[in-house]
Simulated scan of single mutants.
Amino acid sequence: MEKKFVSIILPTYNRAKFIGTALDSVRAQTYTNWECLIIDDGSTDNTAAVVAAYDDPRFVMLHQENQGVSGARNTGISASRGDVIALLDSDDEWMPTKLAIQLAYMEKHGYAICQTEEIWYRGGKRVNQPKKYAKPEGWFFEAALEMCLISPSCTMFTRSVWEYIGPFDTGMLSCEDYDMWLRACLQYPVGLVREPLTIKYGGRQDQLSICIPCADLYRIQALVKILESRKLDAEQQRMAVAALERKVYIYTQGCEKRGKDDEAHRVWNLFCKVRDGKKVPEGAVYEQS
């Protein structure tokens, strides 16, 4: 397994206070055949100085104007050389045996995509994950329609997987991982290392899940995309339409409670078009009234 070269993709934006912990966890890996591409997505703090202090040729710093996390990940993967790609967010960290155990699990069970269990911290305190977020293993496209069940910092996949399902959608300011993993779960079974080898931190105001409004619209867009891909069989199509209807219903109910009847009507009409097999113009989901 030491022959597998791993490209670690670590996008960052103004995370100078946290990125050192992520980099320390990469450097501490017992598996040593890796490169770590840090994509500075237009940071205005001292992120560059923090990274420069790591005197290790395996760390490669890339700079770009701000494009968002999807653009940063795409940039990193395009510049990477690894047989296998591992994602790590700049405010998360790994246990030292993460790469070694995950690679061995993928090899043993023949998985092209694999994730690990994770430990959650919210506001500095360790919390238990709600049961609804329990990670499944194998084929679970139907379950993935309901919510994102793959965590980026836990995930590793082969380059052939990326070539088939990538890139991340740069037009999605939120739920870009939900969109990506829907495509993945349609084509691949996903392995699960049942050991918490990733530590995920949350509860801060700068995180996308908090600071990007209308995440429901991005989930709706992801479902519209998968339906319009024409890659679903009849049963998958039925399940995806049902999931889309549920998400549209939740969104429109929220609009009506806030007096946004026009917006509720607009999104419901979009759903009806998709349900009936009609093409929705690109970007139409985001055009709030």
Rank of each mutant, 00 (worst) to 15 (best):
N33A: 14
E93K: 01
Y121I: 07
Y54C: 12
L37F: 14
H63F: 14
W94A: 00
P136T: 07
D45A: 03
S174Q: 04
V224K: 08
D89L: 00
S151G: 05
H265N: 10
C214H: 15
P213T: 13
L227A: 05
R275F: 04
Q115C: 05
L10Q: 00
L192M: 15
T158A: 06
P11M: 02
L173H: 09
Y31S: 10
R122P: 01
H63L: 12
V224A: 10
L145F: 05
L227E: 00
S151W: 03
A184L: 02
M1Y: 04
I212T: 09
R275I: 10
R58T: 08
Y13R: 12
Y218I: 00
K17A: 14
I8Q: 01
R58M: 07
L186E: 14
L182D: 03
C175M: 15
V84K: 02
Q29W: 02
V60A: 13
A16K: 13
N74H: 06
D83G: 10
E93V: 00
G124F: 04
A79I: 12
A28G: 02
I77M: 05
A143T: 05
T12F: 11
G166S: 07
P96R: 09
G123V: 02
L223T: 01
E228S: 11
K200S: 14
L186D: 10
E118T: 01
V26L: 05
L186H: 12
Q187G: 09
L87M: 10
G138K: 13
R81T: 09
G124L: 00
I101H: 04
Y164Q: 13
D206G: 08
Y31L: 09
Y164R: 15
M95P: 00
L149H: 00
V51N: 12
M1W: 08
D45T: 06
S160L: 06
K108P: 00
M95R: 08
E245K: 14
T47Y: 07
K278L: 09
V285Q: 11
E176R: 13
T198H: 09
W94F: 10
A184M: 06
A222D: 01
Y164K: 15
L217W: 12
V267C: 11
E137M: 10
I101W: 01
S160I: 11
L23P: 00
S80H: 13
I220H: 11
F18Q: 05
A104G: 11
A100M: 07
P189I: 14
R183M: 12
S153V: 01
R58H: 10
A48D: 15
S80R: 09
F18V: 02
G166M: 05
V69F: 00
T170L: 06
C214Q: 11
V84H: 08
Q64S: 06
D56G: 14
E142T: 10
L10F: 00
G110Q: 11
D206L: 10
N33C: 11
N33T: 07
